[in-house]
Design a protein around this nucleic acid. Structure first.
Lengths: 249, 249
DNA sequence: CGTAACTTTGATTAGTATCAAAAATGGTGG
DNA sequence: CCACCATTTTTGATACTAATCAAAGTTACG
């Protein structure tokens, strides 16, 4: 399927551009064998406790990583979207104790760690690019900890929406401030350490205050500046090289 | 100062062992120039917003990374201790938007990113070891998100104590279950997304229930199993190769 | 058209924050 | 060694955010 292959090479191009990789390195990345598969919303790419020798590149749709506690509560620890390279680090630590699931219908490229690390050995710059990738994931995780630990429900939700919107904006042309929003309120709650009921109430407030609107799985940001302020959101932690025109102060 | 140098080579040996680095690689690491300095509790190794070309290896004492929000609230996003290699990743992302401060009096080795990445270029396995280091930091951060997002104050505190205790146990022989505990209740609160007052009350409960005791900046774990249970703590996320004898089920 | 998943609303409660102040501790200079 | 000061811990009283429980409404889907 030529379309799928293009999606993969786009994702790789993204890594190449972000990290100033050479044409040779880009080619090397493209030689890695892969398997592309469409998964349904909710499908598991990886199950808590299981090992895997695969890493995933998201070509379409969203995925999320989550962890289930002893008492059954769930915490979502990452949302991933188009062009994101997910789960490389489990090739380093042999164990990633969380689930990875599709959040919407999604198209995923599967690559084996072995193949990746073979290429990395021959092209250290690729290793460095992927390492940088891990560092950015860490930076995002730190921001999440701040968000969850020290912000009110309203701030958390606004911050979360800002992040997803900017990240999406980076990888695809978006019609102004509309973003596909397949997340249920239950999932938002689990990402932010809240309950679904409370998320529902805060969303209502945000609607009433004219910050956002959610309709038919599409989120519209009505007033970005208000939203950004309400979430005390600053995008530096995403480490985008290019300026996305989203921040004023 | 021969003592300090030994401390540094111990820290490097730790990295070497954890990652099966060769003798050659170990030597290469030891050729990196460094500066060792003693810092007072509270001293800043790095200030939010500033750039740095230094990475730190903790030789003695504790440090913590934290971030101050717009409203003045603080979230601690990492505690680091002996042999920890801190802030390498800011050599990759050029920007680490948080403070790094000494938590107690501490002895720190400063190494420049330039030097480190020069050695990494010649010895890819070292790069991989440091990358793995970043991956483990990420794993810990994820666990913190779960802890802060989905656990009660009591669980959070117990979990936090378990983690610090195990990590300490790994790098130095500890008299049974005693651990140096320089953290103030304010700092515990900021690490766990709580208030100091509430931390104080929970600690009182933990004392009464015979789980722990804190006296003169020394924390004693009275009943590890109870503590572990109360914190729903499982150490897998720390990715220790060796079994520390701390877990039963 | 029926069922399951999700959203919305209401009523109540629990956990944690906030504010305030007293007690304890640790360090410093005299 | 003591007096003093700053920091930290402890306690109490109160407020409030967000959780919990329950149920009705809505939407999506086969």
């Amino acid at each position: 399927m030529p379309v799928d292959v293009n999606l993969l090479s786009d994702a790789i191009k993204n890594l190449v551009n972000e990290n100033d990789l050479s044409a040779t390195e880009q080619e090397a990345l493209l030689t890695i064998s892969y398997r592309i598969s469409d998964v349904e919303s909710g499908a598991y790419l990886l199950r808590q406790g299981n090992k895997t020798d695969m890493c995933f590149i998201i070509l379409m749709g969203l995925t999320f990583s989550n962890r289930i506690n002893g008492d059954g509560s769930r915490q979502i620890i990452a949302i991933n979207m188009r062009d994101d390279i997910v789960n490389v680090q489990s090739g380093l630590i042999e164990f990633a104790d969380h689930n990875i699931q599709a959040l919407s219908q999604a198209k995923i490229a599967y690559l084996s760690h072995t193949d990746i690390f073979k290429v990395v050995e021959e092209h250290p710059a690729i290793g460095r690019a992927l390492w940088r990738n891990t560092a950015i994931e860490l930076s995002i995780m730190q921001e999440w900890a701040v968000n969850i630990g020290r912000k009110s429900a309203k701030e958390r939700i606004c911050h979360f929406i800002c992040e997803l919107c900017l990240r999406q904006k980076k990888v695809e042309l978006m019609s102004k401030w509309k973003i596909a929003w397949p997340m249920t309120q239950d999932q938002i709650a689990d990402a932010l350490g809240l309950t679904a009921v409370h998320v529902n109430r805060i969303l209502k407030v945000l609607r009433k205050e004219g910050l956002i609107n959610i309709d038919k799985r599409v989120l519209t940001i009505i007033d970005w500046d208000l939203l950004r302020n309400a979430g005390d959101f600053r995008s530096a932690y995403l480490h985008y090289n290019e300026y996305l025109g989203a921040e004023k102060s």
